[in-house]
Design a protein around this nucleic acid. Sequence first.
DNA 1: ATAGGTGCAAAGCATTTGCAGCAGC
DNA 2: GCTGCTGCAAATGCTTTGCACCTAT
Lengths: 129, 129
Amino acid sequence: MTAGPRSTRQRTAVASALGDVDDFRSSQELHEFLRERGESVGLTTVYRTLRTMADAGEVDVIVREDGESVYRRCSGTHHHHLVCRGCGAAVEIEGPAVEQWADAMAALHGYTQVSHTLELFGLCGHCGS
Amino acid sequence: MTAGPRSTRQRTAVASALGDVDDFRSSQELHEFLRERGESVGLTTVYRTLRTMADAGEVDVIVREDGESVYRRCSGTHHHHLVCRGCGAAVEIEGPAVEQWADAMAALHGYTQVSHTLELFGLCGHCGS
DNA sequence: ATAGGTGCAAAGCATTTGCAGCAGC
DNA sequence: GCTGCTGCAAATGCTTTGCACCTAT
């Protein structure tokens, strides 16, 4: 059977913290956030937990341009993000047309097992000026 | 006036090497490639040169999922890539519809100064099986 | 009881930076 | 000759790993 991960204080704390913010956070930022909350969790554990959750598709991951991985709770369905460069606020967006375009491009060039990364970055109404 | 970078043996070697491959290479890989060619260039210089060229829009940059930056010569016009996970071969593709969709999404949510990242990853006809 | 989780310290890696010497212009 | 370029070594910063201890089941 798919046993699934054990239920521990740390795992619960990480999941809970992710549920309370709606922007992308790095492992280090989330670790600091947990510390401020008083629910201290080892940095290593935060890394391992987020990685596990990401592999399981339970959270979204984006690799920022500086190479750092940032995480956010996930809605479950396939989607992309519109992320604010100023405050990090993120909106989930969908684009059926894009998915179709991607598949068509892959077929056109003889590529199979195609996945894609698509993220929009801009300034939200609040940070825009 | 815009002085532009000085013309040196190293800078020429890096640009030349980029012109001879058509897949994405990391700084380290390009450094190794240059070494094999006999046109040895310091690793630091490869890093600095690629970064400079990327900032100037002279080469394409993609941040892989493991956080490593990879570079490729650039055609000049705005485009995206279809990259083979097996051999790294890359095809430049354009998607006017996607650009429009991105702008529409940004406007819909009140975001300005929007840029986007979009890359497709799959297996090319040769690596597919 | 026992397999899996935790966390500290140390290691790994890609990338950047300090600095002394070298080379375009 | 002055300024920017180069490259070695050292430093930085994110992430992973070794290992001994702890805990949910």
